[in-house]
């Protein structure tokens, strides 16, 4: 009962298609990504090296490194850079510690109840705009919930997001609320994949729970922690939605992040050349940082 497959060795189109499959399957994605990254990159470099007049009829003028030199003296830029760094360090740091702690608790005490985990993960999926609105409502100085709690506790009322001293803190709290779940989820996944044997061996060797955590859990989790931190840091460095709605960068520029500043330069001050220069700076430092981080943590393999 021999079953034939038709034409003896197939037609030439089929052979061509199969032979070039590795290129054909890659092509659509590559074309989209090349157009949408190469073109903007070239534009940014050209724009940053010119002075673009607000009047579209006037030609662009070559400006050399002028736009980049402005970075050195622009205090607003320095403020934005400082704010972005402060935000990144404190927000990501807090999220990591809370996420890890929560994951350890759930891993140890509650193993089944998946819906609990889903609830705890919910904030990271919600639209940042809705999150910002919610926290704006909570921080509201007059009728907000937070001041009601302060009042009940007999503490002084605060303007929170509107207060020069507390604005950054308020933004960080809202971000921590939204993104701790992300850390939590990754740590939970990491914990779930830990092998049992080393713990059994350690327990037999008499290692305390604390020692087991330092000597086994943390080293095992290291790659997951590294990736989680990298992803969160990249996101934190581009923070926009939350500050745009919650504080608008204020008060007194205390929460103005680099992304927000670029937006203002480009659209409010109508200075795309300078915006391009700042963008290139951001791009360069982000890529440099992530490359260093990936190499350092040996994530590439």
């Amino acid at each position: 009962m021999t079953v034939s497959i038709g034409a003896k060795f197939g037609n030439s189109f089929e052979r061509w298609f199969e032979r070039h499959l590795r290129v054909l399957m890659l092509a659509p994605a590559m074309l989209v990504l090349l157009t949408l990254t190469i073109f903007p990159s070239i534009y940014m470099i050209i724009a940053a090296a010119t002075r673009i007049s607000p009047n579209p009829d006037l030609p662009w003028q070559f400006a050399g490194a002028d736009n980049f030199l402005r970075l050195l003296t622009d205090e607003q830029f320095h403020v934005g850079l400082w704010n972005t760094m402060v935000f990144t360090v404190f927000a990501v740091g807090t999220e990591f510690l809370l996420g890890l702690g929560l994951a350890l608790l759930l891993d140890r005490y509650i193993r089944r109840l998946n819906f609990l985990k889903t609830i705890l993960m919910l904030p990271m999926m919600l639209p940042p705009v809705a999150v910002a609105i919610t926290w704006k409502l909570i921080y509201e100085p007059q009728f907000g919930v937070l001041n009601e709690i302060m009042f009940r506790l007999g503490l002084p009322l605060q303007a929170w997001a509107g207060d020069v001293r507390l604005a950054m803190f308020s933004v960080i709290v809202a971000d921590v609320w939204q993104w701790t779940p992300f850390m939590f989820l990754l740590m939970l996944a990491g914990l779930a994949s830990l092998p049992d044997e080393p713990y059994e061996a350690a327990a037999i060797d008499g290692a305390s729970a604390w020692r087991q955590f330092w000597d086994l859990t943390l080293p095992f989790l290291k790659p997951v922690i590294a990736i989680a931190l990298l992803l969160r840091i990249m996101d934190a460095l581009r923070l926009f939605d939350l500050v745009f709605i919650l504080t608008g960068g204020g008060p007194a520029d205390r929460t103005k992040t680099l992304s927000l500043y670029i937006y203002q330069v480009a659209y409010r001050f109508a200075d795309p050349s300078y915006a391009a220069a700042i963008s290139l700076f951001v791009l360069f430092t982000t890529v440099a940082f992530s490359t260093w981080f990936i190499k350092r943590m040996r994530l590439a393999d």
Binding site: L36, M44, Y263, A276, S279, V282, T286, V287
Partner: peptide
Amino acid sequence: STRMMPPIVTIIPLYIA
């Protein structure tokens, strides 16, 4: 690495295009 590009960086050229 294209994922690492902050959106604000590409948005100006995209807007113009």
